[in-house]
Lab assay of single mutants.
Amino acid sequence: MTSCHIAEEHIQKVAIFGGTHGNELTGVFLVKHWLENGAEIQRTGLEVKPFITNPRAVKKCTRYIDCDLNRIFDLENLGKKMSEDLPYEVRRAQEINHLFGPKDSEDSYDIIFDLHNTTSNMGCTLILEDSRNNFLIQMFHYIKTSLAPLPCYVYLIEHPSLKYATTRSIAKYPVGIEVGPQPQGVLRADILDQMRKMIKHALDFIHHFNEGKEFPPCAIEVYKIIEKVDYPRDENGEIAAIIHPNLQDQDWKPLHPGDPMFLTLDGKTIPLGGDCTVYPVFVNEAAYYEKKEAFAKTTKLTLNAKSIRCCLH
């Protein structure tokens, strides 16, 4: 018999989150649709729960009410004593943790798909938090293969000092899905179709896995975050240069030392320094102006996964 890495157990509980950011409308629209008619997301033997994560922000069509829901799922915020004085999103995070967690427990949901849009030209993107997770690498390989020839990129946010504390991190297997470009507060049919297909293929993978299909060893190309880059700023902290036209919409493309990065209003080009080629992502993302992030630098690498098969009882 072929030796293989056996994944822990079959997958039982899956959640699909929309509206973690209330103005990213593809996930909101799909989740609302699936709450009314969820036939397309159901798979035999699998509990799939669509869920609106930040209903107040969705109602106002804004990213958040008090603070970013997708950055506060750490033990400090989840452990705060519940009171009306807490920011709305912290209270909501505790409610979500109660419903789908608790985080880092045996009772937490197996998989959470968190649906997002970006204003950046990132196409279909899967966000991975753990480079050693054979199950998710296999799932992402399946999704990428199923979507081809449509490109699907994998963004690895594993980093020693950049801690995200994402909404989906309460699950055993957290999956971020990011599709763009799409303006905030807008629905685009092409973007919706791409996100819908990503979810379909992900659920198909889980179904095949649960039925005992063995997935042979595989490898995927990923883009691992190195650092986030702020806009150049003046002495008052105001933005002093904008994304250069040569960099705009060039997510995932190589940016070499000396290539144009920013452009000042008086026409001066600010190039990339250093001696390493990087791959920019979230270029000129609207939501990241407040976070002082013009783009993120990534490096390209390959992740390998062992063969996996479900432990059938």
Rank of each mutant, 00 (worst) to 15 (best):
T2W: 15
H5F: 08
H5D: 11
I6F: 12
H10S: 14
H10Y: 11
I11S: 04
Q12M: 11
Q12I: 07
K13Y: 04
K13C: 04
A15V: 05
A15T: 03
I16P: 03
G18I: 02
G18M: 02
G18S: 05
G19E: 01
T20M: 03
H21T: 05
N23V: 02
L25C: 13
V28D: 02
V28L: 10
V28A: 12
L30W: 01
V31W: 00
K32V: 04
E36S: 12
G38F: 15
E40M: 03
E40Q: 04
I41G: 03
Q42I: 13
G45E: 06
G45W: 04
L46I: 10
L46D: 01
E47S: 12
E47P: 06
K49N: 12
I52Q: 03
I52V: 08
A57W: 06
V58F: 13
K60S: 13
C61G: 14
C61F: 12
Y64D: 08
Y64R: 08
D66K: 10
D66I: 02
C67V: 11
L69T: 06
L69F: 10
R71G: 13
R71W: 10
R71P: 10
I72Q: 15
F73P: 15
D74R: 06
L75Q: 11
E76I: 14
L78E: 15
L78V: 08
G79P: 12
K80W: 07
M82S: 09
D85M: 14
L86A: 11
E89V: 04
V90T: 12
R92M: 14
A93K: 06
H98E: 11
L99W: 15
L99V: 15
F100K: 05
G101S: 06
P102R: 15
K103H: 15
E106C: 09
E106A: 15
D110H: 06
I111F: 05
I112Q: 02
H116T: 05
H116P: 00
N117D: 13
N117F: 03
N117G: 03
N117T: 12
S120F: 01
M122K: 03
G123C: 05
G123S: 05
C124T: 06
T125H: 08
L128H: 01
E129W: 09
R132Y: 11
I137V: 11
Q138H: 08
Q138W: 00
Q138F: 02
M139G: 00
F140A: 09
H141V: 02
S146Q: 11
A148W: 11
P151N: 11
P151L: 05
Y153N: 12
Y155E: 06
E158L: 01
P160M: 06
T166A: 14
T166V: 09
T167D: 07
R168I: 14
I170H: 10
K172F: 03
Y173E: 04
Y173H: 12
V175C: 05
G176M: 15
G176H: 08
E178Q: 15
V179D: 02
P181G: 04
P181L: 01
P183A: 14
V186M: 11
L187Y: 03
D190L: 03
L192N: 04
D193S: 15
D193G: 07
Q194K: 15
Q194M: 08
M195I: 04
R196K: 06
M198F: 03
I199Y: 01
H201F: 10
A202N: 00
L203S: 00
D204S: 03
H207V: 13
H207F: 15
F209S: 00
K213F: 11
K213T: 09
E214K: 10
P216D: 06
P216E: 10
P216K: 15
P217L: 03
C218M: 04
A219D: 08
I220E: 03
E221M: 03
E221T: 07
V222T: 08
V222Y: 03
Y223S: 00
K224P: 03
K224R: 09
R233L: 15
R233D: 04
D234S: 07
D234L: 08
N236I: 08
N236K: 11
I239F: 06
A240N: 09
A241P: 02
H244K: 00
N246A: 10
L247D: 00
L247N: 01
L247M: 06
Q248Y: 01
Q250E: 10
D251H: 02
L255M: 09
L255K: 05
P257N: 03
G258P: 07
D259H: 06
D259E: 08
P260D: 08
P260I: 03
P260L: 04
M261G: 03
F262G: 00
F262T: 02
L263C: 11
T264L: 06
T264P: 00
D266Q: 07
K268C: 15
P271Q: 13
L272Q: 09
G273H: 07
G273P: 15
D275Y: 09
D275I: 06
C276F: 10
C276I: 11
T277I: 07
Y279N: 04
Y279L: 01
Y279H: 08
V281E: 00
F282R: 13
V283H: 02
V283E: 01
Y288R: 07
Y289H: 12
Y289D: 08
Y289P: 09
K292A: 14
K297D: 00
T299R: 13
T299C: 15
N304L: 15
A305I: 02
K306Y: 08
K306D: 13
I308F: 05
C310Q: 08
C311Q: 13
